[in-house]
């Protein structure tokens, strides 16, 4: 619904959302740690965690959106994504981060750090993809 406070954002980023890890453990989204993602990927067998370094953050033609350029994985593949400024990414060893942490906290109640160039985010690929 356009009137939803989280319009354009997935509901699972709202503080208090229950997340199921690959081993069945339940955690709140704000309590997730780097190890939870790494261990879940190991258990899943299908998914592989990649380190995606933020190379550039630039404005988008869309209001409240940015284009983030990542350098993904060992091959340093350059990938650009357009996201809302409040969209949270999980930074290795740090936790949730977004381009506009104040807005993320306002909309989702999720505490965030400021996402910056050089931050290493967790991303996923399918193991079958080469």
């Amino acid at each position: 619904s356009p009137s939803s406070p989280t319009a354009g954002l997935p509901p699972f980023f709202m503080k208090g959302s229950i997340i199921q890890l690959a081993d069945g453990e339940l955690k709140r989204v704000e309590d997730l740690r780097t190890e939870d993602f790494v261990q879940s990927a190991e258990v899943s067998g299908e998914l592989k965690i990649d380190s995606s370094t933020v190379e550039r953050i630039e404005g988008s033609g869309t209001p409240n959106a940015v284009i983030i350029q990542f350098s993904v994985g060992e091959n340093k593949a350059q990938v650009c994504v357009e996201v809302l400024v409040e969209y949270p990414f999980f930074v290795f060893g740090q936790g949730w981060s977004s381009c506009c942490p104040d807005r993320t906290t306002q909309l989702l109640a999720l505490s965030c750090a400021k996402l910056s160039v050089g931050d290493v985010c967790i991303s996923l690929t399918l193991k079958s993809l080469k």
Binding site: I18, V79, I122, S123, L124
Partner: peptide, 25 residues
């Protein structure tokens, strides 16, 4: 009687982006 409300549970992999090299600019 009040029915207990089910709480949605989300899969961990929903929270991290799939960055595939096919998206390369």
């Amino acid at each position: 009687n009040v029915e207990p409300r089910s709480v949605p549970v989300f899969a961990w992999h929903s929270l991290v982006p799939f960055l595939e090299t096919s998206q390369t600019k």
